[in-house]
Design a protein around this nucleic acid. Structure first.
Lengths: 138, 138
DNA sequence: TATTGTTATACTCTATAACTATA
DNA sequence: TATAGTTATAGAGTATAACAATA
């Protein structure tokens, strides 16, 4: 049964639903699909990642990663490299071009939406404190 | 350039990214795709909706709605009905079976995740207040 | 034998463009 | 003419299963 819903969660859930389209929209600005943007976000420069670990990060089957990586590699944004330690694995690295797209895209994601900026300074500080306590409880 | 990022937004953004998989996961519990779950969420009982309005709600092209509705109708969860006023439009209604799935699914979505329940009562009330002010500023 | 990544296959979601039937 | 929904087409993401190379 439903009954009473936690008020904080109800409001946060509404916000999550409303912000649902934000990532896909920003990805589209760079002519990236949502998953492609996700890959660029996950693939930190100086921190190459095996394809299998990317599959985990994306939460999808390893077989999908082949095609996703193919398309990003065709656009020159990432590259496959052999892993010296284990010749079965392929390590992904972001190219200079990919790094430029990544930096600009992360900057766009970092821009706070009006919902945040409209809040009073006190509310923003309060909110940051609560969310920090939420994150710290991991 | 990037520089300083709004702390509240940074934390909220992290939370959004972390919760990204929640809706698809809950949809999967009911053997629904994310979009199908979205349709069931948007289609309130006693409030039939023209297909074009559903396309707006989903944020996708009208041509996609045909297939999405086809599959939900084949499963007996929704129905197309002719609109008496304008014979071009088809109105969507949720079936009794669809209503049962919808109710259970919304109840699952309403369950607050541990991140919320772990917060102190004070923080939960504070958070609800801030989010309410955010929502009110529309 | 087990694991990494690929291929083959099938389905869903997505957009664009052309079409129909109404208005 | 314009609008609501459909169809045709093409591309991308998803899962499962079978496979090759390597461990």
């Amino acid at each position: 049964m439903m009954g009473l819903m936690n008020p904080a969660w109800q409001l946060l859930n509404d916000l999550l639903m409303a912000q649902r389209a934000r990532m896909p929209a920003i990805a589209a600005e760079f002519e990236l699909s949502p998953v492609q943007a996700q890959v660029l976000r996950l693939l930190e420069p100086e921190r190459p990642m095996p394809m299998g670990r990317l599959a985990c990060g994306l939460g999808c089957d390893a077989s999908n990663v082949t095609g996703i990586v193919d398309r990003l590699e065709a656009r020159g944004l990432i590259e496959r490299r052999p892993a010296p330690a284990d010749r079965r694995v392929r390590v992904l690295v972001i190219t200079p071009a990919g790094r430029r797209v990544r930096t600009t895209m992360l900057a766009r994601l970092a821009e706070p939406p009006v919902e945040i900026t409209r809040l009073s300074r006190e509310d923003q500080e309060l909110l940051a404190g609560i969310l920090a306590r939420m994150a710290a409880a991991d």
